[in-house]
Write a protein that binds this DNA or RNA. Structure first.
Lengths: 195, 195
DNA sequence: GTCTATAAATCGATAGAC
DNA sequence: GTCTATCGATTTATAGAC
């Protein structure tokens, strides 16, 4: 089955998503026009609608794939270790994953309010699943006497907020390497939930 | 000097700022039109330009005032105490201040990219002043042997990120009171910088 | 100080040619 | 699959009456 002349299916789609990702992260979903996205890929605006039914679906698709990747990678972490080891794995994973895709992280947080209600519920549910995984580690650690945490739900949100904040300041050419950042954050998290 | 008929100077201005604040926080700066703001205050769009030269100045004004309030209140905290006491004051202050104005906090972080370059530099400088105040506390504590922090700059950003995250989940009618939240976060912060 | 009216530009999305 | 052209709505901001 030969491709139609001028067709770039399989390559144009991803390029559109990458351009949208970059532009949404830089200017915000509402501030970016379909014409801007098309221009960044070398297309006219109308051609975008061969790849997405509308602008909203493009945003949702980016966020959904991001959350699926996050939960997919998370599920591959060792889950039989002691709570302290699982917490360390979580901390190092969270930092590495988020530093690897700062634009997606930014969008997944900043553009929640630009999702339609039903799309919002989907993303919010996935986010909740992720939080629950960390809370489970903390609860197990408290039950085992490894951690001393007065409120596991609050501690979960506090740790995630602390770790995710790394994307706001980390620069690859900066003072610290990723492993150094992981070590420093792990040290703080470890102490914050210790007895 | 009698006021012109129909004039509401001194009351309309603040009402416009409050409406803009609420709408920006809910939908984002770029997604809110001057007509929406005017409508929320019972005006036509043109009337807004008696109070702000343009939409950008309205956003900047909200963010600038917020940062000035933050630094003003911060400067009134006791600064002669021991590092541990100063850190506790900072943590409790940060939480109380931010929970008291979640919409401004949200905007001051989310809409940075919608500021013009010169306006961005102003806000970024004030934010840096605030971070420096916390880093000073941590550095003093390390020098005094009260804290054990491997990297005071990273610890500063980590603590601020953790604390500011409270605005994303706290609800006044929720499970925890503000003092309870302050206690829980202070416990985690205290341990995270301890020896 | 607020209004109506409007300028000038841009928006998302669609239709139809190729 | 991409193009040109366009619809209809909306945008910021301004001009001028009152």
């Amino acid at each position: 089955m030969a491709r139609t002349q001028g067709s770039h299916a399989g390559i144009t789609g991803p390029r559109i998503r990458e351009a949208a990702l970059r532009l949404f992260a830089e200017h915000g979903f509402a501030a970016v026009s379909m014409r801007q996205i098309a221009s960044a890929v070398g297309l006219q605006a109308g051609a975008l609608y061969n790849y997405t039914p509308d602008k909203q679906a493009l945003l949702f698709s980016l966020m959904k794939e991001h959350m699926d990747d996050l939960l997919g990678d998370l599920s591959r972490l060792p889950s039989q270790d002691a709570p302290q080891a699982r917490l360390e794995s979580f901390v190092r994973f969270h930092i590495a994953f988020h530093l690897d895709r700062p634009e997606l992280v930014f969008i997944a947080y900043m553009e929640l309010r630009n999702l339609t209600p039903e799309n919002f519920r989907v993303i919010e549910g996935l986010r909740r699943d992720y939080e629950d995984a960390l809370e489970r580690i903390l609860s197990d650690g408290v039950a085992a006497g490894s951690f001393e945490v007065a409120d596991t739900k609050l501690a979960t949100l506090a740790v995630i907020a602390m770790l995710t904040g790394v994307t706001t300041w980390y620069r690859p050419d900066g003072r610290l390497s990723v492993p150094e950042v992981q070590d420093l954050y792990w040290d703080m998290v470890r102490k914050s939930v210790s007895a």
